[in-house]
Nucleic acid binder design. Structure first.
Lengths: 145, 145
DNA sequence: TATATAAATGATAATATTTTTCATTTAGAA
DNA sequence: TTCTAAATGAAAAATATTATCATTTATATA
């Protein structure tokens, strides 16, 4: 089992959730893809290994993983409602390929200065932000030629 | 008619779309709110003035306005599928109140340096980005006390 | 290891959202 | 004013998500 998979499993159990074969499979599938997946895409993959699984179980598992902040939702390029493993641990953002859905994480974007400026200018109490870049990954650039 | 409303109307006609009373009302409604609106919220408002309008017309009008880039979609804080007038003209971003849905536009965030860095590091060809801040507007902060 | 129990599952139905279809109406050009 | 392509609204269809509930199962504990 991958280290990161074990971390997810551990987090689940620490919060009192049972580790069923279905959940294990969903986690394995999410861990082993770099792409963002919709619940249905995830279902299709898991279904091939475990044909008896219900789509509801996917939704429920995603809900738990989201609550525990083990996955992130992506939005850019019409991808709302797609999820992606949150490769721990720090605050990070995503660079998304509009063609194949591959996601690269990045850190080191300091928005705090901007945040402070906006707070001052608008009086908002800023709690969170959403930053995504969208483009073509190297592989998809080559294919496009 | 507000200046900005006229601009939207003009853009519609320039692209060969007819200006129906329904479309005019949808536009008026979008122009006159600072909040982001779901198709259904928009429908409810327009419906009060024009009870005969169909929800489909809302969807179709939003589709056109989005295609002409006259409105923006917002995402942060579970607001996917909500729209907002694109107050012209420059590239800008949004600061969204999670309580009341009010949106404040801001410019002057230069991501191009970061974009360049990411391009170099990852080989991505970056085409677009999504940046939103979410928080509480002044009014909602006061109410919360 | 066997048992008890609360939690999880999957089938089904219910809800919600968005799109399609199509007959009728209408904006705007001629 | 007339004509025609475009737009509308009603209805149905397609999608996506959530709720209900009887059955099964993971796991704590005897």
């Amino acid at each position: 089992m991958k280290l990161i998979e074990r971390e997810v499993v551990t987090a689940l159990r620490r919060h009192g959730y049972k580790l069923t074969p279905q959940r294990r499979l969903v986690i394995q599938t999410v861990v082993s893809t770099q792409n963002h997946l919709t619940p249905i895409a995830l279902y299709e993959r898991v279904h091939q290994v475990y044909p008896n699984i219900g789509l509801v179980t996917i939704y429920r598992t995603l809900e738990i993983l989201a609550k525990l902040k083990l996955i992130c939702e992506v939005h850019a390029g019409g991808s709302c409602g797609s999820y992606l493993l949150k490769r721990p641990l720090e605050h990070h953002h995503h660079l998304i390929c509009s063609e194949c859905g591959a996601v690269v994480d990045f850190t080191g974007c300091d928005l705090s200065q901007l945040e402070q400026r906006l707070s001052l200018e608008t009086g908002f109490e800023i709690n969170d932000h959403l930053l995504e870049f969208i483009g073509l990954c190297q592989a998809c650039q080559k294919e496009a030629t």
